[in-house]
């Protein structure tokens, strides 16, 4: 009887960690959708780019700085590079379309194109191989009770994720850039009349979203080890789902959706087996959407298509 609760507790921790990765990536989908109403299909590939940059950087840095210091530096490099890639997709693929007032479908197709370009480019560069991220970090249990084990890595990853989400929430709420982001989401032209450089803020949004995805992928590397050109595909779809479940465009919604999806997957793995976990998780998510079509934190708004 105790073991089952220990297992549930264990899976809750696992689910929260995976879920916080989903959440960090979902934030990018949600922020971009909020500000330019684009489903940025390439965002999962940005996650993958982050993982590779982190992997490659760590390969160089780890000789001098093994363990956490090397990982932190690698993740920071991954953030910057992924942020720049994200910014460039916006600058050269999406901005010209937005300027030409292209229909949303054209934007969507462009995003799919950008996704394929990144996906295939990385596939060629990495010779379609799967690489293994060897962090060299041994997990030390901080707390153990029967089947339940909480390690220092888990606590560190959860703390980083939580601080990032808190930081982003504060930034959106309190800073001028954050207030401008929210305002652009509602009324772009009026923002221009306030002297807000709308393109610049959209660029900043892409940079931040992409950097968050890169941090998520760096942390993901530590736990899940495999790095490949296709890793962003399913992860991206799941993070996007999380964003929709939370209510796309909503920042707290993306966080909630990500955590919920992670939890459902972990619980599903435990009780219905890992081959059914996606069916279990997505089945429940469909039920949520039936009762809350706009997502958990989404606003009821009339979509103009």
């Amino acid at each position: 009887m105790f073991t089952i609760w220990e297992l549930i507790l264990q899976q809750t921790v696992n689910g929260l960690i995976l879920g916080s990765f989903y959440a960090l990536v979902a934030l990018g989908y949600s922020m971009v959708y909020g500000i330019i109403k684009l489903l940025n299909f390439a965002h999962g590939d940005i996650f993958m780019v982050g993982a590779f940059v982190c992997f490659a950087s760590f390969g160089v840095v780890s000789a001098a700085l093994p363990g956490w210091p090397g990982i932190v530096i690698s993740i920071v490099i991954a953030m910057i590079i992924a942020g720049i890639v994200g910014y460039l997709t916006q600058r050269f693929a999406y901005r010209p379309l937005i300027k030409a007032a292209a229909p949303r479908l054209s934007l969507l197709i462009t995003a799919i194109g950008v996704s394929l370009i990144i996906y295939n480019a990385v596939m060629v560069i990495t010779s379609s191989r799967t690489y293994f991220f060897q962090s060299g970090i041994e997990a030390a249990p901080l707390f153990q009770a029967g089947m339940f084990r909480l390690t220092d890595i888990q606590v560190i990853l959860l703390t980083i994720s939580a601080s990032l989400m808190a930081g982003l929430t504060l930034m959106i709420k309190k800073t001028m850039v954050g207030k401008a982001m929210r305002a652009i989401a509602l009324d772009r032209d009026t923002c221009r009349l306030m002297g807000i450089n709308v393109n610049k803020i959209i660029g900043v949004t892409f940079f931040i979203g992409s950097a968050l995805a890169a941090i998520a992928s760096g942390m993901y590397n530590i736990l899940y080890v495999n790095v490949s050109f296709s890793m962003g595909y399913m992860f991206g779809i799941k993070a996007f789902t999380a964003a929709v479940i939370g209510g796309i465009g909503s920042i707290p919604g993306a966080m909630l959706g990500g955590l919920l999806l992670g939890l459902l997957e972990a619980i599903g793995t435990q009780f219905v087996g890992s081959q059914w976990k996606d069916v279990f998780a997505f089945g429940l998510l469909i039920v949520i959407l039936i009762f809350r079509p706009n997502g958990l934190m989404g606003k009821t708004e009339i979509e103009r298509m």
Partner: peptide, 26 residues
């Protein structure tokens, strides 16, 4: 040179304070 938009275009989900702050964005 500052234009007040037709139909006011207040940022509805921003507080009065935030609306004013955004007015002095530059």
């Amino acid at each position: 040179l500052v234009q007040l938009p037709e139909g006011r275009h207040i940022f509805k989900d921003h507080t009065v304070l935030e609306n004013l702050e955004l007015g002095s964005y530059t």
